[in-house]
Amino acid sequence: MVRTRVAFAAAALLCSAIVARADDGAIIDRWYSALLVADRSELSDLLADNVRIKLDDLGVVQSKQEFIASIAEWQGAVAGAEIRHRIEKSEGGVTTVIACYDFPSNDMLMQETFAVANDQITASSQAAIAENCDGY
């Protein structure tokens, strides 16, 4: 009987971890969909109020308000673009993504990390890993 309870508890824990990872993946999918069309409302909903977005290549850390304010400029840059992404790993509440930003005049391969809690992004970082998406 004890073995059965332990096995059941282990299975329940595993299932909850899988569901949490799936939920984080859904949040990240929503993020890239909203980013592609510069949807301020959706991006705002996805970001926790105290989020910090670190743009490693620029040496910039943005608050939620600063990030949302920058979307007007981003909207022009993303027109006609495509963003492809895949989750590389998810552990300890942090998901690492490889993303190809395929703009009309160039493309760039990025590594991005997302910390997600309560269905919102609480932290994010972004760093270029290649000047093109050949490695995607």
Rank of each mutant, 00 (worst) to 15 (best):
74 W>V: 07
92 G>E: 04
130 A>C: 04
93 G>R: 05
51 V>L: 03
22 A>L: 15
100 C>F: 04
6 V>E: 14
102 D>F: 00
103 F>Q: 01
85 H>D: 02
108 M>T: 14
22 A>E: 15
30 R>L: 13
64 K>Q: 08
18 I>R: 14
85 H>G: 00
130 A>W: 02
62 Q>A: 02
95 T>Q: 04
82 E>F: 04
61 V>F: 02
58 L>M: 14
116 V>W: 03
91 E>S: 12
49 D>R: 00
57 D>P: 06
66 E>D: 07
101 Y>M: 08
13 L>W: 13
115 A>H: 05
50 N>A: 15
86 R>S: 12
51 V>S: 06
17 A>Y: 10
112 E>L: 09
77 A>M: 08
71 I>Y: 03
16 S>K: 04
9 A>R: 13
132 N>G: 11
117 A>H: 04
3 R>L: 13
20 A>S: 11
20 A>I: 14
4 T>E: 15
24 D>C: 07
7 A>C: 09
99 A>K: 00
118 N>Y: 02
5 R>P: 01
88 E>S: 04
23 D>M: 12
19 V>L: 15
123 A>H: 11
31 W>T: 07
94 V>L: 03
80 G>R: 13
112 E>M: 10
67 F>Y: 14
3 R>Q: 12
76 G>C: 06
134 D>C: 04
2 V>G: 05
31 W>R: 02
16 S>A: 15
4 T>V: 10
78 V>P: 02
54 K>G: 02
74 W>G: 04
24 D>A: 15
103 F>T: 10
23 D>R: 11
9 A>K: 10
9 A>L: 12
131 E>P: 06
85 H>C: 05
1 M>C: 08
105 S>L: 07
62 Q>R: 06
95 T>H: 07
57 D>F: 06
115 A>V: 08
56 D>N: 08
72 A>G: 13
89 K>F: 10
87 I>H: 05
29 D>N: 12
65 Q>M: 07
50 N>P: 08
78 V>H: 01
60 V>W: 00
58 L>Y: 09
12 A>V: 15
37 V>F: 08
77 A>K: 14
83 I>R: 04
116 V>A: 10
49 D>C: 00
99 A>E: 00
10 A>Y: 01
7 A>S: 07
3 R>V: 10
19 V>T: 15
63 S>L: 07
80 G>W: 14
